[in-house]
């Protein structure tokens, strides 16, 4: 399995506080991975670095077959290169319809002029409807997304990510605030997505991680503490110390 994303030796400091400390991380092309860790372990900062929101002080972030560095690219360029990100809180465009939200995310030329002259084709509309079906919002298309429930917004956001057709999906706490059924649906969506692309899920909830049934990376104080199957890492003494010892 070839490597899609390789993060090596990355460190970042905020006002003297080391948020990420010599972190190294790899993920393959079609892999589901969960990242867990206590508060302040650097999970969100790690995603910030990969998506270009935060520039690390040192280290390399290498992407894809051509091994390009992500560090010199803007957020938008990284997104176009195939990294999709879902935020912790659902962020959809609440003032716009579900259809518009998905159309916006659909993989198309992103430049201002092509977008200005873009008119949706029948195929695009079909694709949007298909996606809506996948995320269970097929009958919600004309509604304003602000009117959706919390869970539906989360799915819409995942749907938008899928519409982007990214090679790597970064998902931050997708199950937070969801009912049990919603969680199951979310799990299915992520597992399904990971068949064709890499998916990284940041999660607090061990139960949800167990359901994902994938390799787990434990972050602590900005560095990798342990990596492996969930049972393997939960048996690790360091992990137990970090999670329970204090």
């Amino acid at each position: 399995m070839s490597t899609l994303l390789e993060v090596s030796g990355v460190s970042v400091t905020f006002d003297g506080f080391r948020a990420i400390n010599n972190l190294s991380f790899q993920i393959g092309k079609a892999e589901l991975r969960a990242i867990i860790g206590p508060n302040g372990a650097g999970k969100t900062t790690f995603m910030d670095i990969v998506t270009g929101k935060t520039r690390p002080d040192t280290g390399r972030v290498i992407w894809g077959d051509k091994s390009v560095s992500l560090l010199k690219m803007s957020e938008a360029q990284i997104a176009r290169a195939g990294v999709g990100r879902k935020f912790q809180r659902p962020t959809v465009f609440e003032d716009q319809s579900v259809f518009d939200n998905l159309l916006l995310a659909l993989k198309k030329d992103r430049g201002p002029f092509p977008v200005l002259f873009y008119r949706s084709s029948a195929r695009d509309r079909e694709r949007v409807e298909e996606l809506a079906g996948e995320i269970g919002l097929a009958d919600q298309l004309p509604r304003k997304s602000g009117e959706l429930s919390h869970g539906q917004k989360q799915w819409l956001e995942i749907g938008m990510l899928l519409a982007q057709d990214p090679q790597l999906l970064l998902v931050d706490e997708p199950a937070a605030g969801m009912t049990l059924e919603e969680r199951e649906h979310t799990t299915d969506l992520l597992v399904q997505a990971a068949k064709t692309r890499a998916v990284v899920v940041v999660e607090h909830d061990m139960e949800f991680v167990r359901r994902l049934n994938c390799k787990v990376t434990v972050l602590h104080e900005g560095a990798v503490l342990a990596e492996g199957g969930l049972d393997h890492v939960t048996a690790n003494k360091d992990v137990i110390d970090v999670y329970l010892g204090r």
Binding site: S74, A76, A79, V92, D95, Q96, L104, Q164
Partner: peptide
């Protein structure tokens, strides 16, 4: 059109639009 959709997206959540590429 979609352009209007994008700029309204920028108005409401600039970072999200950026992460959409």
């Amino acid at each position: 059109g979609k352009f209007g959709s994008v700029i309204r997206g920028i108005r409401d959540d600039e970072a999200r639009v950026r992460f959409l590429g």
